[in-house]
Write a protein that binds this DNA or RNA. Structure first.
Length: 468
RNA sequence: UCCUCGGUAGCUCAAUGGUAGAGCAUUCGGCUGUUAACCGAAGGGUUGCUGGUUCGAGUCCAGCCCGGGGAGCCA
């Protein structure tokens, strides 16, 4: 366009290897982040999307379209040709002396983003524009890197990535309220003689839902590939309105055959450290930004996580610690009760100041598939509690013994017919196996310091909110 | 779902029950090295919605809607 026929360079290339481009002509394209002008010259900070930082463009009235350029609003798209030179300014090492600017797409005057700080609440109302801000530029590049690091970590260890179904045919998992998937005409529902809805004419011929977990399906593949993981969208129709819950989120669920709870924790700990290291190494500018503007203790906390062994305590020990703390909890602490948020935070934030695995919970407060311990009272479950975010990982060794599993399902009144395929895996070559689920957004929150899950999902879906 | 705080210009926020304000943004003008540039001027309002109290409501009361935080549920 506009007669510029040089090869376009990315801002990231310039920042990573400035000597290669110094005093040479380059062409860039991107969006104006800020623009300042005087009578005969001005400055544009250009962001081309490839890099967190902007490149300063120096413009003056030698440009044939100088008067049009200085009137451009923030977020206008331009292509610039010019020479990269050392900058006399203190805030940037180099800058581009523009020789030609092509206006690709001007931004209208009512562009809603200013060059000053906005509240996260406001930015959520313009989720289609917020990736153009510093914070969201950083968050979503980190999210992309972390997702890649997930695959890298597991693939390097020989895990097989299984795409488990998004649509599930039965209410198997029991992990939360589910969204129904149906093509039935809601205005004209056919009913069975007992008054219930007749799903026989629905798309799947039965009541179908969106998945709340890929675990049970992942288990079947672990018992063929040994080590597998599933990583994808997950849906919960819970009416929870908190900064840590969304109706649609991503969950990572590794599952390992011939593995026990300790193996499970080893992998979870190594994985979390790997994700953090990968982000620090591959997005240093973004991490520096979070540390400066979002959470001043972020890097110190992450360094501590990466360089220390996670604590591992039993549920019973956790109860003892809470009881002896003399701390006045709103919810009284008794063996057998589930740990409340205030208890989890006390343990991770006040006692250990680092991630803590809590294991071996009473069977009554955990899912049916968790392996019964020899004490007959607890199950081989694990929760990883981290300061600031709370529960980030939940997992367990699975009950591999057919009789124990059936007995537990009977106690909880679960329909064995619904789980026929799951039970069969315990008939044909069963073995000890374990796995866990990582709430991907919670991991991103932990790595970036962001405190609301709605700010680490591109277009968040929450209760009464599915705009965009 | 419960508790709590809030909703005023495009944004961030002021305003004893008595004329609706500022900064930034926008538009126009000025300025020869800016860094959220600076200086001057102008335009910009159904104070979330409905009803009530009052001579008079942004302000007080009731209901509803929307948002933040906390709790529960969980990842």
């Amino acid at each position: 366009m506009g007669g510029i026929n040089m090869e376009t360079v990315f801002v990231k290339q310039i920042f990573r290897n400035p000597d290669l481009y110094m005093n040479k002509e380059v062409e860039l394209s991107g969006w104006i982040r800020t623009i300042r002008d005087s009578k005969k010259f001005g400055f544009i900070e250009l962001n081309d999307g490839t890099f967190f930082k902007n490149l300063q463009i120096v413009i003056d009235d030698s440009l044939d379209n100088f008067t049009e350029v200085v009137k451009l609003n923030i977020s206008s798209a331009i292509t610039v040709q010019g020479e990269l030179v050392e900058s006399p300014g203190a805030k940037q090492p180099f800058e581009l002396k523009a020789k030609q600017i092509v206006i690709e797409g001007p931004a209208a005057a009512d562009y809603p983003l200013q060059k000053k700080r906005h509240t996260f609440e406001y930015l959520r109302t313009i989720a289609h524009l917020r990736p153009r801000t510093n914070t969201f530029s950083a968050v979503f590049r980190i999210r992309s890197l972390a997702a890649y690091a997930v695959h890298k970590f597991f693939q390097e260890r020989g895990f097989v990535h299984v795409h488990t179904p998004i649509i599930t045919s039965s209410d198997c998992e029991g992990a939360g309220e589910m969204f129904r998937v149906s093509t039935l005409d809601l205005d004209n529902l056919k009913r069975n003689p007992d008054g219930s809805v007749d799903f026989s004419e629905d798309f799947f011929g039965k009541d179908a839902k969106l998945t709340v977990s890929g675990q049970l399906a992942a288990e079947t593949y672990a018992l063929a590939f040994r080590n597998v993981y599933t990583f994808g969208p997950t849906f919960r129709a819970e009416n929870s309105n908190t900064p840590r819950h969304a109706a649609e989120f991503w969950m990572l669920e590794p599952e390992m055959a011939f593995a026990d709870l300790n193996d499970n924790m080893d992998v979870a700990e190594a994985m979390l450290k790997y994700l953090i290291n990968y982000c620090i190494e591959n997005a240093p500018e973004e991490m520096e930004f979070f540390n400066k503007f979002i959470d001043r203790e972020l890097m110190a906390r992450l360094d501590n996580v990466v360089n220390s062994d996670f604590r591992r305590i039993t549920y019973t020990e956790a109860i003892d610690i809470l009881k002896k703390s003399k701390h006045d909890f709103k919810y009284p602490v008794e063996w057998g009760c589930d740990l409340q948020t205030e208890h989890e935070r006390y343990i991770s934030e006040k006692v250990f100041h680092q991630p803590v695995f809590v294991i071996n919970y009473p069977k009554e407060i955990k899912a049916f598939y968790m392996r019964l311990n020899d004490d007959q009272k607890t199950v081989a479950a694990m929760d990883l509690l981290v300061p600031g975010v709370g529960e980030i990982i939940g997992g367990s060794q699975r009950e591999e013994r057919y009789d124990y599993l059936v007995k537990r399902m009977e106690e909880l009144g679960l329909d064995q017919e619904e789980y026929w395929w799951y039970l069969e895996t315990r008939k044909y070559g069963t073995n000890k196996h374990a796995g866990y689920g990582l709430g991907f957004e919670r991991a991103i929150m932990y790595i970036t310091g962001l405190s609301n899950i709605r700010d680490v999902i591109s277009f968040p879906r929450t209760v009464r909110s599915a705009e965009f």
